[in-house]
Design a binder for these strands. Structure first.
Lengths: 254, 254
DNA sequence: AAGTGGTCTAGACCACTGT
DNA sequence: CAGTGGTCTAGACCACTTC
């Protein structure tokens, strides 16, 4: 696995290729340590700077993780939470468990919702105002943890006119969560609309979710719509991509 | 916007912060050129290496794009194709247009499917074999282009037993595409299951989709299931994340 | 030819981890 | 303390783009 100096491919890329191949083949297993920088310097006959650039490529690809004072290690694959489109059924609500909680428990992991302060009534951005048809909403911001790791940021907006009816910001709760509370107050849910976009984490999101800069996240926006056609909840989550998969089942239609 | 050398924050990160702020505020608009490396050297009082590292951060975040001999530019946001879960309705098929084609035309973009060779009958990986309940399948591999840009890789697997019935690998076609062909041969479709995972592009995918290394992609796996409960198509696509959004609408259920 | 970004070397100093 | 990764400087050579 020597460097081909006649090749057009940059040296650092060849080093990354060689190491990537060792990882993919299992020669360096998940959790195992890669050669140290000085070992790479010897092996490939380059300066430490160039060896580091090779390592940086793998880190950027999310394959490895550097630990100061210890070395560079192959990333362990994280447990992946399934998010399913049948998670909002009334029977699931009646069982009392949130969808995320149930999924986490099925994987043998503990679960936690960290509220980022009290429910506030705020002026919402245009995009949300358009969706809910009014300019103000009660918003609850949370950070979800599963297995001791932050997995997603979740903001829930309830239109102000609905909030006064159901007492959300006043702190009223029922076992079925926000959707239970809505249905208990005459807003029977008719349908949901979810829109998913994957993108790279902003620096702020990366910090909040303990991700490396530019790691992929999934942004999910949900509209919960009642039988009167009103959007009674606008839900916005940003989830670490490598900890979530999204499953949708739907019927063939005419 | 000078560098704070007393801060813990590395100099290159401070440079990235300053430039990111200019981009977010619109001071440097999409498509506009950032200061050249030598200008950054002057402005921030660092070496070119450090200035480059600052630029590298933004590039990794997907905010900018370097063009050799020209400069570094703020990325223009790409047109985003909506992928909808009602795209497989029979009425849409009757209209003769594929879902992607219709979406592209709505955006005023041209569309193209580039086949990566003939339909082949192959032994499939375990995961697919398990899904379709047999070890062999006819596979068609495509690369889709929209607006002159590759947008996704799409592999379609038809179980071998179904293939012989409907003549897929033999080249038979009907206006409604593969789903039309299936339904014309007694495999009336009952439901679909789609699973989405976002992750970073592999180097091979990055090349095929003209993405920078480690850019996010969305991997979508679809099972098309007929009324007998048989998976009659296993579809696997890898799409450039910044060119797609996925929209699912579904009813509240009991 | 001048200006741009891309790669690489050589060496310094620092911060963190484990012994 | 030795070994690890993290940051930064200084300067060289190269490839590409425009004039």
């Amino acid at each position: 696995m020597a460097i081909d100096h006649t090749s057009d491919r940059p040296v650092f890329a060849q080093i990354a290729d060689a190491l990537r191949q060792r990882i993919r083949s299992g020669a360096i297993a998940p959790g195992a340590k890669l050669p140290s920088e000085s070992e790479l310097v010897e092996e490939f006959g380059v300066t430490r700077t160039t060896a580091r650039r090779g390592l940086a490529v793998l880190q950027q690809e999310g394959l490895t993780e550097a630990r100061r004072g210890l070395g560079v290690f192959v990333r362990e694959t994280a447990p992946v939470i399934a998010v399913r489109n049948n998670r909002f059924s009334r029977s699931a609500r009646a069982a009392g468990k949130g969808a995320l909680a149930a999924e986490a428990e099925a994987l043998g992991l503990d679960w936690q919702s960290e509220e980022q302060g009290p429910v506030e009534i705020v002026d919402v951005p245009d995009e949300i105002a358009q969706a809910i048809g009014e300019p103000r909403a009660a918003v609850k911001r949370r950070r979800m943890w599963v297995g001791g790791v932050p997995t997603q940021l979740a903001d829930s907006y309830i239109p102000a006119s609905v909030d006064v009816e159901i007492g959300y910001s006043a702190g009223l709760t029922v076992p079925g969560g926000i959707y239970g509370l809505l249905e208990a107050n005459g807003h029977r849910l008719d349908r949901f609309r979810e829109e998913l976009v994957a993108r790279q984490a902003s620096p702020e999101e990366a910090v909040a979710l303990h991700l490396s800069n530019g790691a992929p996240v999934v942004s999910l926006v949900r509209h919960a719509i009642d039988e009167a056609g009103k959007v009674v909840e606008y839900f916005d989550s940003v989830a670490a991509a490598d900890r979530h998969r999204y499953v949708y089942e739907f019927k063939a239609t005419d």
